[in-house]
Amino acid sequence: MKETGFYPGCSLQATSREYNESVRALARHLSLPLREIEDWNCCGATAAHSMNHELALALPARVLALAEAQGMEEIVVPCAACYGRLATTHHTLVTDETLRQKTCDTIGMEYSGKLKILNAVQWIEQYVEPLLANAVTHPINRKMACYYGCLLVRPHKVLQFDRVEDPQSMDRLCALCGSEPVDWAFKTECCGAGLSISRTQSVGRLSGAILSDAAERGAEAIIVACPMCHSNLDMRRPAANRSLGQKLDIPVLFITQLIGLALGIPRKELGLDRHFVPVPQW
């Protein structure tokens, strides 16, 4: 089977190790070859592109160039923020030849633009989904609210992934795991994102609204595909609860964790014990 490049990014090494673990667990379980890009660097995240346009292009461009130099044709980028930065940079470089040359000069490497960049959901759709029907051994018969956040589907012009309002891809994957996706209103609302540390209260208010709508519609868990979303909904739960004036214990899972559970992968391998809000035994 074709090997897929893997770009973890910083979150998957730290706050969202369980995302990293669950992606790799899925790959291992289904024998999907993943190869981490050697010598990868930070994607620049929010900090770079709000400060310095050149740097914001050069950092992801180096990652893309490395992947290409290491013979990869496609890479999977589970972190939605990294995915956004890498995909946007790719789009900029392939549409603006002057910028491409300038950026290549800056990083001292070539980038042809032939690389294909997948987010976690696209990787699952391409490689995991065809195997799911036979591989699901422990269907999770629960109601799930799929939360896409902002970076997975926006900017739509660049990413061309799913519908920008009311996306459906994770809902479909949930259903394949035996779960019932709920139709809710906050799929792409802001969780507060990078204000997590500087303005925790705001994050509490925004994430609180997301959590309470999911809970009101009977969801028993929230499914995400972004480390930022996960940490705001999970780690910032006390702030959210304070804002709502009630205690919500709805757990937040990565899509890879949900699929892993449905495949019968042990909880520990999926990093489920790392969550702040405990995930019940289903």
Binding site: E165, W184, A185, F186, D213, E216, R217
Partner: peptide, 12 residues
């Protein structure tokens, strides 16, 4: 910017 239906059926 948005119109959505709340769980109780009210439109927001």
């Amino acid at each position: 910017a948005r119109v959505y239906e709340r769980a109780d059926g009210k439109l927001v």
